[in-house]
C-alpha cells in the first residue's frame, strides 16, 4: 500500500464541497472548450497564466518601473503627470552632506539617521539572530524527547502579527510592566525602557529576534536533520573529537542552509518596520527610526509629504535588496545542486 498523500488528498475536494464547485466549473467549461478549440492548447496556457500576469503586472511590475520616474520628480502631487521633472535633484538632496559620518551635517538628516540606525540594527540583529537560532537548532537536534513540542515552542511567535508582537512587548516594557515588576522584586529600580534611546533600540533588536528566530531555527534544524546520521557514527568510530566533528562535518554540511538563512535574515532586517513601529513609533526621538519608516513617513505620513524623495530613498534600499536577493538565489541554487537543501 502506498502512503503517497495524493492518494487520499482528493477527498476534501471530491466529497465536501463538490456539488456547487462542480456546478460552477461545468458552467465555465463550455466557453473554455470553445476557446481551446479556437486557440489550441497553447492558447489555454496563456489563459491560465493571464490573471496572475495581469495582477502581477499592474501591482508589481508597473510600480517597480514608475518608481524610477517618481524619484526624478518633485512636489507633493500624487499622480505622475501632475508632477514636475527635477532630474536627479532628489538623489542629490539625499546625498547632500558635508560629513557623511555625521547625519546632522546632511540636508536630509533623518534619512541618514535612518540609514545609520538600520545599519546598526542589521549588524546587531543578524549576528544575534544567527547565533540564537543556530544554538537553538543544535539543541533541538539533540536526542530530545518531544522534539516537535520544543520546536513548536520556539516557532510560536513567528505566526503572531507584528502589531500583536509590538503590543505584547510594549505592554511588558512599559512603566508598570512585567519587566519592571521582575526587577523591582529583585530589588532594582524600575526603568521606563522605551523612553531611553539605547534601551528602546535594544528592545527593537530583541523583539525582532524574539518574533522571527523560530523561523530560522526551523530551516537550520531541517538542514541539520538532513545530515546523514551515519556520518556522525563513522566519526565516532574514528574517535573524532566533538569540536572537529562540528567543524568538519556539521558546519560544512550545514553551510548552504546557513548561508541562505544569513541572507534571508539580512533581507528582512534591512526592511524592518512593523513591530518596531508599533513598539516605539521610531522613538524616542529618532533612535529607532529605520529606513522603511523613513520612506513611509516621507511619502505618506509627514506634514509636507514628498513622494519623490521617498521614491529615491526606496530605490536606494531596493538596490541593496536586489543584491542580497540575487545572492540568496544563487546560494540556494548552488545549495540545491549539492543536495544540501531539499
Amino acid at each position: 500500500m502506498t502512503t503517497d498523500p495524493r492518494e487520499q488528498s482528493g477527498f476534501s475536494f471530491g466529497e465536501a464541497i463538490a456539488k456547487p464547485v462542480r456546478f460552477v466549473m461545468d458552467l465555465i467549461d463550455p466557453p473554455l472548450r470553445f476557446l481551446q478549440r479556437t486557440t489550441g492548447i497553447g492558447g489555454m496556457a496563456t489563459f491560465f497564466l493571464l490573471p496572475n500576469m495581469l495582477i502581477f503586472g499592474i501591482f508589481v511590475l508597473l510600480p517597480f518601473f514608475i518608481n524610477f520616474a517618481y524619484s526624478m520628480t518633485g512636489g507633493t502631487a500624487l499622480f505622475l503627470p501632475d508632477r514636475t521633472f527635477v532630474g536627479t535633484d532628489q538623489y542629490a538632496r539625499l546625498f547632500d552632506c558635508s560629513n557623511y559620518l555625521d547625519a546632522n551635517s546632511c540636508a536630509e538628516d533623518t534619512f541618514w539617521t535612518a540609514v545609520g540606525n538600520t545599519a546598526w540594527f542589521v549588524l546587531l540583529q543578524v549576528t544575534l539572530m544567527i547565533v540564537v537560532s543556530l544554538v537553538t537548532a543544535l539543541i533541538l537536534n539533540r536526542d530530545l524527547r518531544a522534539r516537535s513540542f520544543w520546536r513548536a515552542v520556539f516557532f510560536f511567535p513567528v505566526l503572531l502579527s507584528p502589531v500583536v508582537v509590538g503590543l505584547i512587548w510594549k505592554w511588558i516594557l512599559q512603566r508598570q510592566g512585567l519587566l519592571n515588576f521582575g526587577l523591582y522584586s529583585l530589588g532594582f529600580e524600575p526603568h521606563v525602557w522605551l523612553n531611553d534611546r539605547s534601551w528602546s533600540f535594544a528592545a527593537a533588536v530583541g523583539v525582532s529576534i524574539w518574533a522571527h528566530m523560530g523561523f530560522y531555527t526551523l530551516i537550520l534544524l531541517a538542514g541539520l536533520q538532513a545530515i546523514p546520521r551515519d556520518l556522525y557514527e563513522a566519526a565516532e568510530m574514528d574517535g573524532t573529537k566533538p569540536t572537529r566533528v562540528f567543524l568538519r562535518i556539521t558546519l560544512p554540511l550545514l553551510a548552504p542552509n546557513l548561508l541562505v538563512v544569513i541572507v534571508l535574515v539580512l533581507i528582512r532586517a534591512v526592511q524592518i518596520f512593523d513591530e518596531v513601529y508599533v513598539l516605539t513609533g521610531g522613538g524616542p526621538g529618532t533612535s529607532t527610526l529605520f529606513l522603511t519608516q523613513y520612506i513611509y513617513e516621507t511619502g505618506f505620513a509627514a506634514q509636507l509629504r514628498n513622494p519623490g524623495l521617498a521614491a529615491a530613498a526606496s530605490i536606494l534600499m531596493g538596490a541593496v535588496l536586489v543584491v542580497l536577493t540575487l545572492l540568496q538565489l544563487s546560494l540556494s541554487r548552488s545549495g540545491e545542486k549539492k543536495g544540501g537543501r531539499k
Binding site: F59, L78, G318
Partner: peptide, 28 residues
Amino acid sequence: VAMLLILATLMVPLSVIMVPLYSIVSAL
C-alpha cells in the same frame, strides 16, 4: 520570461514600491 519575471518579484518587496503602488491603487 514569465518565470524570471515572477522570480524578480522576490526582489521588489512592498517597502520598495509603496509610493508608486499607492498612486496606481489610487488611480484605479
